[in-house]
Nucleic acid binder design. Sequence first.
RNA 1: GGGGCUGUAGCUCAGCUGGUUAGAGCGUCACGUUGACAUCGUGAAGGUCAUAGGUUCGAGCCCUACCAGCCCCACCA
Length: 884
Amino acid sequence: MENREFNMEKVYQPQQIEARIYDAWEKSGAFKPVMKPGRKSFTIVMPPPNITGQLHVGHALDEMPQDVLIRYHRMKGDPTLWVPGTDHAAIATEVKVVEALRAEGLTKQDLGREKFLERTWEWKKEYGGRIVRQLRKLGVSCDWSRERFTMDEGLSKAVRETFVRLYEKGLIYRGKRMINWCPACQSALSDAEVEYVEQKSHLWHIRYPGPDGHDVVVATSRPETMLGDTGVCVNPNDERYRDLVGKTVLLPIVNKRIPVVADDYAEMEFGTGAVKMTPAHDPNDYEVAQRHNLEIVCVIAEDGRMNENAGKYAGMTTMECRKAIVEQLKEEGYLVRIEDYTHNVGTCYRHHDTVVEPYLSDQWFVTMKPLAAPAIEVAKNKELVFVPERFEKTYLQWMENIRDWCISRQLWWGHRIPAFYCEECGELTVSREDITVCPKCGGKVDQEEDVLDTWFSSALWPFSTLGWPEETEDMKNFYPNSVLSCGYDIIFFWLARMVFSGLEQTGKCPFHVALMHGLVRDAQGRKMSKSLGNGIDPIEVIDQYGADALRFSLVMGVAPGADVRLSNEKIETYRNFCNKIWNASRFVLMNLQGFEPKGLPAPEELSIADKWILSVYQDTVREVTDKLENFDLGMAATKLYDFVWSDFCDWYIEIAKQGLYAEDGGVKRVTQEVLLHVLTGILKLLHPYIPFITEELYGYLPNAGGMLISASWPECDPAYDFADVAARFEGVMDAIRAIRNLRAEMNVPMSKRATLILKPHEGWYDPLAAAEGYFKRLAGASAVEFIDSAAPNPDKSASAVVEACELFIPLGELVDVDKEIVRLTKDLKNLEGEIARANGKLNNAGFVSKAPAELVEREREKLATNEGLLEKLKARIAEMEALR
RNA sequence: GGGGCUGUAGCUCAGCUGGUUAGAGCGUCACGUUGACAUCGUGAAGGUCAUAGGUUCGAGCCCUACCAGCCCCACCA
């Protein structure tokens, strides 16, 4: 152990330690929960990244709050479990594999379902592990022995159990509905998977010839769909079209007569008041068609192209068709006018450029109303708490306006729906076990081709990963989970669905706290995206600056739920912080050679500075702990950053040099104990945020005893709170700052030593005298003289008045009297301003009578002090003026 | 149409249940290598807390209105 510190690099080199430390953690089993009877466990399940994914900063942000909380609770001694895993990501993965096949000139149909699935599993084997390896580089402390995959055996069983239960309860049904169809996915999507984007377009006004020259002009944003028009809808109260209701108009191009119907759906004020009805390709039109028995003509195929019903337009994409139709309408004189129009177009959340088509088809749905009710209830009665609170509204608004969930996807990769159709009698059987014959007639059955929405399985993640539906030990120990942390962008996709699934399947809200975080943005506040090329690769960042710097930059000062701006400059700032800690530790260790710690010295052995740092340290421990308990991770980090850099490094370490280099071995030992005690605490407090460097440094400490840093969380001892002494020491620090200020303004470098003369104010002699050495070390004093309050002020001095004393630096000819007066007058003005403010308050009868007595008293004391200072300052200015 | 967020120093953001003359980092300027660290230290400049009212003894914080920017949901062709 001895001399190990001399091997410490002068500059922190994360690349040399991170991998080694992570291995040590994993080997030690530190990430596995340690059960303790009667002790409440702390559990989080990790939002499973897609197996298709590569680590991006979004993941890094996602893991941070979780790892901080997990590490904190582990250190506190709670049985702590963080469950990792990956998501099969039905559509995303299938798209990747199809792309890979295309490169070989193959389609998935060429392979057939079975071969395609084999191929996808192989793909999963190859790439699925990539992201979990990358996660380790971040330092996530999850229990890899419990890693799960949404399509592994256990989870598939959970999915199937859930599906069958919901079906048996009548909460899953199959039916022909208007759903969102993505022509690129070639599959249905749920409402949540559609993203609306604003698009500039037009409203085309088209004339449909009516009887007796009474034509109808309809306005449409999608002229190509007119090929599937089967009616025109007008408002029943619309005088303009009243005589046409019940009659027919001629559909141009198609040359077919279609009925005019009256329905409230048509708004008289919008467009022309007449709406063309395309029931096969518009959800609203479909509903009107149902009410009025309109024919349904499908003109757009599953691939997004016009089908055979589109006649000569068949085979065109909708956009090609639109152009051609508009052209023909113009030629034939049916196009009345074109109006500019901005509207929202639904796009696929996986294929951003692909417009989603409303499409009528047979799909599977979950009836949502009965499932949403208890999910609303738990939020309202605070069994489920959102941090920050505002996301409860987002959640409730969605739950309260819930619509049935389309769960079937026309894909192969995923959980195949456990429904079987009889070839003979058509009976539909939903079953926990695969069946080959119809239970009703014994005929041959075929399993449903569709698979489930990938979110159907992730909705079960908080308990399926723990072994549900079996009654496992893990279920008993770790369910419900303590906290669920995810980005606010997946509240609907995931969080909400976990809540109602957990409530329905287990009877319990799956977690108590929903801790939300925001999105990572670039330095300009834009979302990071491939197309913008503004993404930051976390792996590159880690290689360059270290994982800890990245981690800290994702939480430091970030309010819960807020978006985070990330830039290299920011990461550098925290890399510098890591280096600061490294060097502070290096300094302490250098001075701990041959030192055997015996614990904190008794209070009476401590210096005023020791008492100050210990007091501030304990305040910091309490505050950081409190913030962590309340999920305010950004604030806790800020607090630590300030304490470490300003209080510990800039002040205490500089002060400690005096004790360390002292002749008196007793003083040296006390200083060593205090340095070690506070540094140990700092490393522990920081460990949840920056685990690598703190673990590495902890290993060097003589009091580590071969333990991992996570073995305990710092505790406070009231015997080491010294608020009064600490306040006195702050007064000393102010005096030191005042001197530094003088020197800076007079351009006197620290290396130019100067005598310091102090005239202490009442009650301040002792702390100032105790700090004599600090004035020498921190303020460049060659000697410190104390003079009595009645003594005359030294001649030709730069001076300042602070709470503790008047201070003088006799600089002889260096003193510029005029400049001195200007500076002192500036101080005077500040003081006068403060006195005026306090007088204003104290002369206000309302303040004196209504404000807390303690506050009034504090204000009075401050006023008295300041008035005293004011007198002295005035006198000093008069003295200087006399010299002029 | 409904809901939400943001507006504080040149930039990025803190600011706890309302109570010291509003803070930090970066940037700028001046000075400084004193035995951990130039990935450093010391100091300085810089703010009518978007705007207008209101509540209060007291408002960056609470209420109302308004301006600006952003997000989510709904989806009138």
